[in-house]
Every structure is written in structure tokens, then in C-alpha cells.
Design a protein around this nucleic acid. Structure first.
Length: 534
RNA sequence: GCGCUCGUAGCUCAGUGGAUAGAGCAACGGACUUCUAAUCCGUCGGUCGUUGGUUCGAAUCCAACCGGGCGCGCCA
């Protein structure tokens, strides 16, 4: 359901660009007359009056000129009621599947198999999973790609350390690498052994990677993230094609030698290079990314690539995409997009770290979330759902391109734009529906202003989802759900449901049912659970 | 030095060139023999970093400056 589109359709032929949008002054407004005033050399209010006079809004809305030349639209209560009735009977809640399904590859999470998951993995994992869920629900064919860091220097360090000592701590291996020159040299030789296929080294590598994958999958399950074993696409898997990628780029004249390294300069020699072969002949992550991209657009093949990676990598991806385009690996109609996100900051406004200055481990962060949520409920399953929901919601509810401040008290607050507030609203709805027994959608009537405001918002789910699918701005979905929950709470206070007279009772139960289903669906698309009781 | 990004209420944040810039938190004042008060209603709170420019109209677009964060050749 899209009331903006219905209104716009009635205005075609009168206005080229109806510019219909929600308005605090009416249900919807159009500012088109203001823009046309100059072209038509008329007063905006005169043009707006003409639009009102000529538009055929019969059976949909009323219109009036307002302010400096806006046309304000008020949807008729009968239309709102009929639309809500229809959406309540629609399994897809008024949101159709896309008419142009694409094969979308979403590259997300991407932990390093040599290391533990930290708070730094929260955003790429949580945002990526929400993007996947949204696009899948809208009917796209989504490929999850977990670009596991399972190759390179860090593994040389870790394998050498574990062979020497039996200890598989990356942190201690790293410390030794930084302080022990002899160990450092051996670790670097170990990288060469790994990449040349030394059997003993490979055995250790496989063992370590397998262990890490198991740990990661445990964490995903705990977080309610949909990544599975089959979604791992490690950097190592692109190893066989790196030389070929460089050869192809060379043949296309895209590389120059610079200080012994082979580089692409997609933005000119006065900008940073993309190093595709190091001066020692080795390959770095730029080459792996190019090989992965080529595989993804040529072999899978995907038509939309989404890289859910932190904002500091912006320049890197701009260069990778530019080189790939020049090489013909991103033909017309195939889009690559860096879905960038900001950092998580501590209360001091700097990168979020533990008191000791180390990265906060993800498992410990979730433990603390569960402990804090446990003060709100005695049911461990509910505490886990509230804890994970609060953490994820906090991450998804602010514009992902910006940084955000991690604050336990705020994210677990029971009121405000938080996970627990939405889960509570859902639980209250569940409670009403349980008391009512079997509820089937009935005809909706709109009388009380609180009902009207709720219905208007319920009907906005489709434009919100369409917008989110394009911009991947998940905070627009959280903002919508919070507004919906708040409007429901007002409705809940003002409009008795179970005690309402016959007829009204069925209508209000239908509004509860529909609100609950949209909250549940919306939160599910964000990867957040909705317990029936809190 | 070059580049990217952010700067909006005391705090945390929305804001798609359009009307009097909105929420939540905090503060203050109200509403529970309830459909879950984990809630709701109300009040208070703004030089939209600064200065110019474009425009009928700028928080939004452009330029310069100030301030924060981040990146910039062989880690990933």
C-alpha cells in the first residue's frame, strides 16, 4: 500500500512532478506549486488552487491550499479503513515482492580466522545480516559471502607460535612478533611455507581455521545471524587466480611499475595507488578483492555487489571498483557498492575499548548484555532475546555512515527508540490477542484520532521498505517501527480493545493484529527476536 | 600536505531544496481497583559550527574557514 503513489497517480496530467509526501500539517502535502511559480509566472497559491480545482480526488481524499502554496491532502477515513482492512488480510503486509529481482551478493562479517571476534565485528555482521534479510524478503536472490581472513601474515605468526608453544592466542603471537626479531623472521618464512603448500603448515592452518569457523558459527547463532558454514568464502580460496588477475590487468594496460611494485592508479599518479603485486612478488588484499569481485560478477554471476565494510576502507573500495570497471569486470547493469559504516565509540568519544585498552571481545560484550537484561526478567531465553535485541537495535538505529556511542543504559532503556521498547509493545499486543482467542482479520473502521494516526502509519510500511531496499539505511526502518510502536501505545491508552462494543472490538483487534505483524516482521528483518511475553 | 567524513536542544540522535527544524533521554507537572504503568499525557528546552554564495525558498546544494574523527605504497 502506498498512499503517496495513489495521490500522485490522481495528479498526473496536472503536475509533472506531484512531489507528494507526508506532512505534519495534513496527511500528505505537495509543494509542486511553489516550484512551478517561476516557470508559469503565477502566484504559487494560484497554481495550488488550480491543482485543487482540477484534481479528481473523488473517493480518495480532500485537498486544500495552505500556507505559501502547498496543497494539503487529507485521506478519507473510509479509504484508510478499507486500505487497512486489505493490508491486514495480506500476508505481505502491503509490501509486494520486487518486480525486478536481482542476484545480490552481500559481503559481510568477514572476521579474521587467526583472531577472536571483538566488538569491531558487531557492525559488519549485524548490518550485513539486516541488509540480507531485507533484500531476501523483497524477493531478491541473495548470496551471503563471509570473506573470511584466512590467509597472509597473521597466519604465519599464529602457526609459528602454535607449533613452538602449543598456544593459539593471536594476541600473544602478535606480541612475540613485535618484540622477538628471530620469531618474526621465522613467522615470515612460515607465511611462505603456507602459501607454497607445505604439508605440515597446511595441516596446522586447516586445524586453526576449522576451530575459528566453529567459534564464529557459535557466535552467529547466539547473535541470531543467518550466516552458515556454506557462506564462508575465505581469502585463501581466491589464491589460485591472483597471478591470472594481475596478468589480465597487465594485458589491459592498467598497471604500471612503481618502486618495484605493480600498481594501478585509477585516480591518477598524484593519488594513492592500488598495489596488486608487491615488490617481493607477493599479493596483498587488493588483489584478493579484485579476484573475488571478478569471480562474483563473472562466475556466480551477481548483478549487485554490496560490501558491508567500515568507512575507513572507502578509498580502497573506490579504487577496487574503478579498476574492476576499467578491466570490464563491472559491466553496465552490474553495480558494486561499499555499504560503509562508522565506528563504535566509547563514552569518551574515542574508539570503544575495554578499561585495559584492549578490544572488547564480542562474547564478553554479549555476556554483559545478558546479565544486564537479566535484571529485567527471570526467563533466561527472554533475557537473551532482550539483550541481543538491544545491542543490535542500538547498532541499527542510527545512520550507519556515522559513528555512534555505545551506552548500556540507553540501549537497554525500556522507553525511547530502543529494542526493549519495541519488544514490549509487541508483547502487549500479543497479550491482547491471546486474551481475545483466535483473531482473524475483520473490517477496520476508523473513528478515534488515535486509530486514524495508527492506520496512516501502518499503511506506510511499503514506502519505508522500498526506500530501505534502495538506500540500505536501516535506521529508517527502526525509526518507522519506533513511530509505529509509539502510535500504538497512544492507541492502546485511548482505545479499549477487549472492552469495546461489538464491531469496534473486531476492528481494533484487527489493528492490534496488523500492528503486531508489522512490528514482528520489521524486527525480524533487523534480526531482532520478538518474545510473546516479557 | 592531499583526500574522505561528521558538526542540529543539556545528552543521544532524526530531518528526501519547502510551511513555525522534530523524536527520545534528562528535568519538571500529571494519569495505575489496567487490555502488561517496562506505558501514556503535558511543560521546559534551538545563532542547525562560522562567514559568504546559489535559489522564490537552504539544516539540506556550492566555496572558504573553525573544530572532531578517519584514511593516504607494498598489514588486512
Amino acid at each position: 500500500m502506498n498512499l503517496e503513489a495513489l495521490l500522485s497517480a490522481r495528479l498526473t496530467g496536472i503536475l509533472d512532478e506531484p512531489a507528494v509526501r507526508r506532512s505534519p500539517h495534513a496527511d500528505f502535502q505537495s509543494g509542486a506549486a511553489l516550484a512551478l511559480a517561476r516557470v508559469r509566472r503565477k502566484q504559487p497559491r494560484e497554481i495550488a488552487a488550480d491543482v485543487v480545482a482540477r484534481a479528481n480526488l473523488a473517493g480518495l481524499a480532500s485537498a486544500e491550499v495552505s500556507g505559501p502554496g502547498f496543497v494539503n491532502f487529507t485521506i478519507s477515513d473510509a479509504v484508510l479503513a478499507a486500505a487497512a482492512t486489505e493490508v491486514a488480510r495480506d500476508p505481505r503486509l502491503g509490501v509486494p515482492r520486487t518486480g525486478h529481482p536481482e542476484t545480490v551478493l552481500v559481503d559481510y562479517s568477514g572476521p579474521n580466522a587467526a583472531k577472536e571476534l571483538t566488538v569491531g565485528h558487531l557492525r559488519p555482521t549485524v548490518i550485513g545480516d539486516a541488509v540480507v534479510r531485507v533484500l531476501e524478503w523483497l524477493g531478491h536472490d541473495v548470496i551471503r559471502a563471509n570473506h573470511l581472513g584466512d590467509w597472509g601474515t597473521s597466519f604465519g605468526m599464529l602457526i609459528e607460535h602454535v607449533i613452538n608453544t602449543g598456544d593459539d592466542s593471536y594476541q600473544r603471537a602478535r606480541a612475540r612478533f613485535d618484540t622477538d626479531a628471530d620469531f618474526k623472521a621465522r613467522a615470515q618464512r612460515r607465511v611462505v611455507l603456507l602459501q607454497s603448500g607445505d604439508p605440515e603448515t597446511l595441516r596446522w592452518w586447516e586445524r586453526l581455521v576449522t576451530e575459528s569457523k566453529r567459534d564464529f558459527l557459535d557466535a552467529y547463532e547466539r547473535l541470531g545471524v543467518t550466516l552458515t558454514e556454506g557462506d564462508f568464502a575465505g581469502e585463501s580460496s581466491y589464491q589460485p587466480w591472483l597471478a591470472e588477475v594481475v596478468d589480465e590487468l597487465t594485458a589491459k594496460g592498467l598497471l604500471v611499475e612503481s618502486d618495484g611494485a605493480l600498481c594501478a592508479f585509477p585516480f591518477g599518479r598524484d593519488h594513492a595507488p592500488l598495489i596488486v603485486r608487491k615488490s617481493d612478488g607477493g599479493y596483498g588484499y587488493a588483489t584478493t578483492d579484485l579476484a573475488a569481485l571478478r569471480y562474483r560478477t563473472q562466475e556466480l554471476p551477481a548483478t549487485r555487489l554490496l560490501y558491508v565494510v567500515g568507512a575507513p576502507q572507502r578509498t580502497h573500495f573506490a579504487m577496487v571498483f574503478a579498476v574492476a570497471r576499467a578491466a570490464g569486470w563491472l559491466p553496465d547493469g552490474v553495480h558494486a557498492e561499499h555499504v560503509a559504516f562508522g565506528s563504535i565509540l566509547g563514552p569518551d568519544g574515542r574508539m570503544f575499548r575495554s578499561r585495559s585498552g584492549a578490544s572488547v571481545k564480542l562474547a564478553e560484550l554479549l555476556d554483559e548484555a545478558v546479565a544486564r537484561a537479566g535484571e529485567l526478567t527471570t526467563d533466561p531465553a527472554v533475557a537473551a532475546a532482550v539483550a541481543v535485541g538491544a545491542v543490535k537495535y542500538a547498532d541499527l538505529s542510527s545512520d550507519r555512515t556515522g559513528d555512534y556511542v555505545f551506552d548500556w543504559d540507553r540501549m537497554l532503556a525500556l522507553t525511547g527508540n530502543t529494542g526493549p521498547y519495541l519488544q514490549y509493545a509487541y508483547a502487549r499486543i500479543s497479550s491482547i490477542l491471546d486474551r481475545a482467542g483466535a483473531v482473524t482479520p475483520a473490517a477496520v473502521t476508523v473513528t478515534d484520532p488515535a486509530e486514524r494516526a495508527l492506520v496512516l502509519e501502518l499503511l506506510a510500511f511499503e514506502p519505508v521498505m522500498t526506500g530501505v531496499a534502495g538506500s540500505l539505511e536501516l535506521h529508517r526502518l527502526t525509526g518507522y517501527l519506533h513511530t509505529l510502536a509509539a502510535l500504538f501505545s497512544t492507541f492502546y491508552e485511548r482505545c479499549p480493545v477487549l472492552r469495546a462494543p461489538d464491531g469496534v472490538r473486531e476492528s481494533r483487534l484487527t489493528l492490534c493484529l496488523l500492528t503486531g505483524r508489522i512490528l514482528r516482521r520489521g524486527l525480524d528483518l533487523l534480526g531482532i527476536a520478538t518474545p510473546a511475553r516479557l
